[in-house]
């Protein structure tokens, strides 16, 4: 399991910039950022170095910030990589809440998934031959 930083932001001019500045001022590097937005608010999900420290810095600055455990899987960068993973999830009756993918070099992509069955999923995935990603492969630990 890896620790994702989640931040609740009002859908308002300058809020994302201000949140990123708070993280930057804490001396923390970001590796990925995805925004889910609705009409009046957005939920920002990030992979950052020292996620706990980042969440604390944001909370101290008045933000709603939390750490969410998510599963990350390394997938070969080729057609059907993600489909295969999702088909496996489906076969195991695992619900995917949300997900996002990013490239890690030329050969691999990292697929991050929030599911309703986080704990046992990693070992199941490993048994099925998927390559799960350890936190230290993506970010500096706290």
């Amino acid at each position: 399991m890896i620790s994702q930083l989640t931040v609740f932001l009002q859908n308002e001019k300058g809020r994302l910039a201000a949140a990123c500045r708070t993280i930057a001022d804490a001396g923390i590097n970001m590796h990925s950022l995805f925004i889910a937005d609705t009409q009046d608010f957005g939920v920002v999900r990030m992979l950052v170095d020292q996620p706990k420290k980042a969440a604390e810095a944001l909370r101290a600055a008045g933000y709603r910030a939390t750490i969410t455990p998510v599963t990350a899987v390394r997938i070969p960068n080729q057609p059907g990589g993600l489909a295969k993973l999702l088909e496996y999830m489906d076969s195991q009756n695992v619900n995917v809440e949300y997900g996002y993918c990013f490239l890690a070099g030329e050969e691999f992509a990292i697929d991050v998934l929030k599911t309703d069955e986080d704990i046992e999923l990693e070992s199941k995935l490993a048994e099925a031959g998927f390559q799960t990603v350890a936190p230290e492969e993506i970010y500096k630990l706290d």
Binding site: T6, F8, T38, V43, R45, R64, T66, E97
Partner: peptide, 15 residues
């Protein structure tokens, strides 16, 4: 405002 321990990671719950 949602309370501090609201599971706001899930947009479904906010909606």
């Amino acid at each position: 405002e949602p309370v501090a321990d609201f599971p706001f990671d899930e947009i479904r719950k906010l909606e």
